[in-house]
Design a protein around this nucleic acid. Sequence first.
DNA 1: CAAACCGCAACTAGTTTGGTTGCAATTTGC
DNA 2: GCAAATTGCAACCAAACTAGTTGCGGTTTG
Lengths: 147, 147
Amino acid sequence: MGLSSRSAVAIHALTMLGRWKERSLTSAEIAASLESNPVLVRRILGSLRDADLVLSTEGRNGGWSLARAPREITLYDAFAAVEAGPVLSRHPHPPSGECEVGRNIQALLEVEFRDAERAMEARLGRTTIAHLVQRVLDIERDLALPR
Amino acid sequence: MGLSSRSAVAIHALTMLGRWKERSLTSAEIAASLESNPVLVRRILGSLRDADLVLSTEGRNGGWSLARAPREITLYDAFAAVEAGPVLSRHPHPPSGECEVGRNIQALLEVEFRDAERAMEARLGRTTIAHLVQRVLDIERDLALPR
DNA sequence: CAAACCGCAACTAGTTTGGTTGCAATTTGC
DNA sequence: GCAAATTGCAACCAAACTAGTTGCGGTTTG
């Protein structure tokens, strides 16, 4: 698995905050759902707060909530907030300028890789937290039906 | 930078093999262009050979060449040959089944992430080694012009 | 004032990455 | 037939990154 799982954790947390947006959730509650650890969750929520996607309040009864409506937060927003650097990594160091291919390939590859990354990001940008919350509610409702 | 730079190295090597497809290149020649190391290059070319993109011959005058025409090899082919596993990584371990979000998010996220990865791969699949070789030749020709 | 929170730094174990070393096997020119 | 030029492959290595943990200080509130 390529990148870190921070995006998955961030989207999971945002979906919880969207699902229970009438109250605030603690990092411990979110960590319980992730079978993880409150500190880890706070690290990621911290990045989301830096990106103005969530708000935190300190002290007793503190916790986390969405900074905007769930339909105004896309999976790309979450991804961009927690994942640093390009997805496809470039040459470890610049190639040789002596070689006809070496001295041109970096710029050519940059265009291709950036376009490919943008295609992925565009797809992530088409789904919002509201979509995921709705799908969770739909599945849970169907399960609750008698038959 | 997220993934490894193996894709960049693989595409660089394939472009060299396409540029000089009348002869075979040694791992040392390719390593020189990458300012890297023949063993590292052979490791990556080995994966490309496993994917039937290149051929190697042993012994004196041995080396590497393309197994198909440059226009029949896409950047996605190179990417798929050397990069293992998904680009966007999933939950580090399954979330809690106790939580309404936890027990549904994995499947929902899987769909989103797979679609996003496919969008990226589709974009990589639209450029071939022949395209890159042609662009290298075009740039070099322009540079050679008097004015 | 104590309990329930967040914030943050330091630390750990495990994995991955890019790179290196050493050596065996293969082919070929002389 | 032998030496040189190659690939093939395993064993390392240091640095970086990942997920997770511990410890502690600061803030809010019942």
